[in-house]
Design a protein around this nucleic acid. Structure first.
Lengths: 168, 168
DNA sequence: GTTAAACCTGACAAGTTTGTCAGGTAAATG
DNA sequence: CATTTACCTGACAAACTTGTCAGGTTTAAC
């Protein structure tokens, strides 16, 4: 259960833009160079991360001099879950058993596999928590995710919408 | 947020031993060769996984002919969290910020880092769920982790003990 | 003792992820 | 319209993870 580098650094970039949104003038942008400097990352790497984020609709770019990047929506309306899904390449329910490079072509557990529903429940659960955390709450010091209210959904849950279900 | 191959395959081996415990005679063991065959893994790989597990006290080996591996305790007393911690190399609280190979020697967030407590809370939270799932419950078909009772601990929580806190 | 069946171990090849590089294309200012 | 400042993109080197290999050592049965 690891957090990937892409998730870590991508989220940091988003948080820089969120800070700019709350502290700068409305619509102001941040240069890639500045984000890279503040995070100790290379310009090229930050560009790559922002490319992923912009193609998922979380951030947008303004070209030309005085250009830069900014969030597409208020940082109160963007959830941690939305950002993590974009950055992490969360495996879908179907991919859970096929993401492993074992030497068997078909999952030996395809019948009576007790593990697949476990993984599915875990990732689903983690995201239900993430979806309730707006990134704005990550700006000021500390948030304890354990205090997030968990809604214990029934098994007849509706499929989760692609967008985030942020609830302040 | 990824489940590593070691976690996946290591847990499968543990579940094979748990099944043997519930279905075989008391104290009976399972051959590495048989586990490998049932899971579609190589004998060498299963040996490596079991080595990790045995050095953490989750499984033990019986040498010689008629030897093999078995769990050290009943599968009702071993939690998913305990197995995952052994297999995943979960980073400790101090390592959370240093597990990334960025090009900065000191974490740029060392003062006022809003991310570290988030990662810490998330991993802590996930494990508090895992610790409540005995591996015996993974044997028969499906368990939905979402229905596990979450105890919302206070911030003045005692440090989590190394052993599992399984509660059936 | 001998043998056979099992576990133990370190080194290494293959594959994936991570981060960089070099060279593009687009837009606003003067 | 030239120039500067910025974003865009594909290919690739380095680092890490994954899984294998070859050869050990230990133990129980006969």
């Amino acid at each position: 259960m690891k957090i990937t580098a892409q998730e870590e650094y991508g989220l940091r970039c988003v948080l820089q833009l969120a800070r700019e949104e709350t502290q700068g003038t409305p619509g102001s942008t941040l240069l890639v160079r500045d984000i890279a400097e503040r995070e100790g990352l290379s310009v090229a790497y930050v560009e790559k991360l922002l490319w992923t984020l912009s193609h998922s609709g979380i951030v947008e770019s303004v070209r030309g001099p005085k250009g830069g990047y900014r969030l597409t929506r208020s940082c109160h309306e963007i959830s941690l879950g939305e950002v993590m899904r974009v950055l992490g390449g969360i495996p879908s329910e179907e991919e859970i058993c096929s993401q492993f490079t074992g030497n068997h072509d078909t999952c030996v557990h395809h019948d009576g596999c007790g593990l697949k529903p476990v993984w599915a429940s875990i990732t689903d659960f983690v995201h239900s928590v993430f979806d309730k955390v707006p990134i704005s709450s990550l700006l000021n010091g500390t948030i304890d995710v354990r205090f997030v209210q968990i809604t214990s959904r029934n098994s007849s849950k509706p499929p989760a919408p692609a967008g985030a279900a942020v609830q302040s």
